[in-house]
Amino acid sequence: MIEIKNLTKIYTTPTQEILALDDVSLRVEKGEIFGIIGLSGAGKSTLIRCINMLEKPTRGSILVGDREITALDKEDLRTARQKIGMIFQHFNLLSSRTVFENVMFPLEIARVPTNQAQRRVNELLELVGLEDRADSYPAQLSGGQKQRVGIARALANEPLLLLSDEATSALDPQTTRSILELLKDINRQLNLTILLITHDMNVIKEVCDRVAVIDDSRIVEVGDVLDIFANPKIPTTRSFISAVMNREVPEELLYRARTETSPNTTKLIRISFIGASAGEPVISNMVRKFDIDANILYGNVDRVKDTPFGNLTLEMIGEPDLIIQAMEYLHGRGLEIEVLNDV
């Protein structure tokens, strides 16, 4: 759906040149929710704004659908933009227009006949659950409702692609969740490709299929969200994940386990769960099967998009070879295991 090749963006200000994107290449597949995460100033907004040419790339090319967006003339770019919806952190609704008229706006721009457009607006307001606020002005709405209007507006011209620039960053956690649910629904119902940027790993965790980590103008890690959560490769990614999911065992627990127990009869292991096995009674099965004790020290179970995901730190006490067999058993159930007190 999107193919970005060797994208470089340099901002030229009177005093300096700022390299905002450095040779970025990325593919986003049709129908997926793709997240880009990075710290403030990493270049996220620049990247997403290049995709609809709100920012003109310095070098490189961007394909959206089958059109090379970077090579279009003004007129063709306007037509192409009608098929790329965008939502914003601060909603950017027109205060002079009602909710209904705001959603009508992109249809007016695309010169859709009025009665057809009105029908479409009603459909969209229903989709985002704001039928009863059609005649309100944006100032009369909550942040979450404003973003729903923003979403309805972005979907008006039946876009191929929805771009979201920190769409939930101005919202409280609960409202964020409801907006993310709405985005997931839309993605499923309309098979709409969504590219979102955020600095909040929760957003990635809740909705994204794949994620790219951008750090200091470069993409440093890309992959399926589950893989990245299970196995983050670089420190930036790890710190994003630990903000939403504590993988690390508290130091004092580790210290106690390492000093007070014998490495032969006690092993400290961390098990990572992905998917279905989180629903199986794997631990109790193991305990029954191998006649060892398992003492749960620490852990958390969460969901990444719709998949259960988590980790558990166990103290396994028993005969050394039984412990090894038990670990092999766990491994055989598709769990990832890390021994923490092997010194």
């Binding site: 037509t79 790329i84 950017n92 609704l93 205060s95 002079s96 706006f105 007016e108 721009i109």
Partner: peptide
């Protein structure tokens, strides 16, 4: 400026930005 940008992102021409964003707002 965000309002103007939103309109541009929908494919508005400069004339549409003037008539539908700048003047009414």
């Amino acid at each position: 400026w965000g309002l103007i940008e939103a309109a541009l992102s929908m494919g508005a021409s400069p004339w549409q930005v003037i008539c539908k964003v700048l003047l009414p707002e």
